[in-house]
């Protein structure tokens, strides 16, 4: 065996003296799953907010009363702001989690946003299709009454 340099020797001695041992594989698997779990939860919650947005737009009781339905403001007034804000919040959390995941940093914020939105939209459509009745109970309470902004417009 060939001799090793004094620096290498010093480093190996320090490792031995400090009794450093490699952390087990499961430690890293657990740490990664800690990132995955909230990522999945926020994506699902994002999907739920998308279902709320779809519901808010399709079941808006005063949209047909709009004076000029083709006007973009009529659509804007019908957008359920609270759901959109919640969706933005969950998407932002998902993006920051994706960044920390394996190779997530290699993608731009826009790419991650698109992935997060696409996942949430797919989940949201499924949610909407599967739980329309339950959404009826939860969302209708809020949408039965127009907001001040909507009242002013319509």
């Amino acid at each position: 065996m060939e001799p090793i340099s004094p620096t290498t020797e010093k480093i190996l001695t320090a490792i031995e003296q400090k009794q450093v041992t490699p952390r087990p594989k499961w430690y890293f698997a657990l740490r990664n799953s800690i990132l995955w779990i909230p990522g999945v939860i926020t994506t699902v919650l994002g999907g739920y907010t998308i279902a709320g947005i779809i519901y808010g737009i399709l079941h808006n009781p005063w949209l047909p009363l709009a004076p000029q339905q083709s006007h973009p403001m009529a659509f804007a007034a019908a957008v359920p702001v609270l759901w959109v804000v919640s969706f933005g919040l969950f998407s932002a959390i998902t993006i920051s989690l994706l960044r920390k995941m394996h190779r997530g940093y290699r993608h731009t914020a826009l790419q991650l946003l698109l992935v997060s939105v696409a996942c949430s939209v797919i989940i949201g459509i499924l949610f909407y299709a599967l739980t329309q009745d339950s959404l009826d109970n939860q969302v209708n309470t809020y949408y039965r009454y127009p907001t001040q902004h909507q009242r002013d417009y319509f």
Binding site: A14, P22, R23, P24, F28
Partner: peptide, 20 residues
């Protein structure tokens, strides 16, 4: 530099199972 190298290699050894 010696201290930094020592810390770096201790971290490498401790986290070797994390390397992909």
């Amino acid at each position: 530099i010696d201290d930094l190298l020592q810390n770096i290699f201790i971290k490498v050894y401790r986290n070797i199972n994390e390397y992909d």
